[in-house]
């Protein structure tokens, strides 16, 4: 019973920590893109040549802005592949042209000044510091990340209470054994060690169960969904981190359990003497 509960807790903590890592990875990418650059959207025209000339002129203008690192025309394919497939219907691809400008991190950029210059020279242009869709995602993801971290903390606290309760019940059940041990000279730490050994046994079994469930779920997710979209620009899917979490969570839970068992036993025994 306790072993199953611990297994479930390890599984949930693994999920929470993996979720946090994934979100952190995405947030980093999104923050990077929203903070360091802006996206200009040029209205579409009926004449492709005119549109091309408009683009070239705009890009020439952008290159003159101090601190600009990179200017990229966001092709329809890329736009669709990154975010717009979530916000637009793929059957109706956007007709406007987007150009993304990235700035050097070390240069202090006044986007309002740049925007006012650009708007003066290109009155029909639409400018965004990052994409609105990204900003929305960013906020949602941050909130989700925060909630997940709180949830992981709550699961940890629940694990501590479960163990404290189980240990307390164990102390009551083994009251006579403890009394005998004390009569023959057992120190409290020796008694605590016996409970810790039992708790470690449960933690190892629970940890293995939780680990197996997490690994199974991870494999299922990887084989079912295409995560290449989530890797965004140059960042890769955090395989190492997630496997690390799956391996690390049981150890973390075992440490928490060992410490809470010891504290519970030592406190209870000190109150009895």
């Amino acid at each position: 019973m306790v072993f199953g509960t611990l297994g479930l807790m390890v599984f949930l903590i693994t999920l929470c920590l993996s979720g946090t890592i994934l979100l952190e990875r995405f947030l980093k990418t999104w923050r990077h893109e929203t903070i360091q650059g802006f996206t200009a959207t040029l209205p579409s025209t009926s004449d492709p040549q005119e549109q091309f000339l408009q683009q070239m002129e705009f890009m020439k203008f952008l290159k003159k802005i101090p601190g600009v690192l990179h200017i990229e025309i966001i092709t329809r394919e890329k736009r669709t592949s990154i975010f717009d497939q979530w916000t637009y219907s793929t059957s109706k691809p956007p007709s406007s042209q987007a150009i993304e400008a990235t700035f050097c991190n070390r240069v202090k950029i006044s986007f309002s000044q740049i925007f006012s210059t650009l708007e003066t020279n290109f009155p029909t242009i639409h400018l965004e510091v990052g994409r609105k869709s990204k900003e929305t995602f960013l906020k949602i993801a941050q909130a989700a990340q925060f909630s997940i971290m709180i949830l992981a903390g709550l699961i940890g606290i629940a694990a501590i209470f479960t163990i404290a309760f189980t240990t307390h019940a164990g102390l009551i059940i083994h009251d006579q054994v403890i009394e005998i041990l004390r009569l023959i000279g057992a120190e409290d730490r020796f008694i605590a060690k016996q409970f810790q050994r039992y708790a470690l046994n449960l933690a190892v079994k629970g940890g293995l169960l939780g680990c197996s469930l997490s690994a199974l779920l991870y494999f299922l997710l990887l084989s079912t969904f295409d995560f290449s979209l989530l890797s965004l620009s140059s960042r890769t899917f955090p395989y190492v981190e997630i496997w690390g979490i799956i391996a690390f969570s049981p150890i973390l839970v075992a440490i928490i359990i060992m410490i809470s068992t010891r504290i519970t036993v030592m406190l209870s025994l000190s109150q009895e003497t």
């Binding site: 023959i184 000279g185 120190e187």
Partner: peptide, 14 residues
């Protein structure tokens, strides 16, 4: 003291 009681009881047989 409480801690010393354990060591004391180790010196006696009951």
């Amino acid at each position: 003291k409480n801690q010393a009681v354990s060591l004391y009881r180790q010196k006696i047989g009951i």
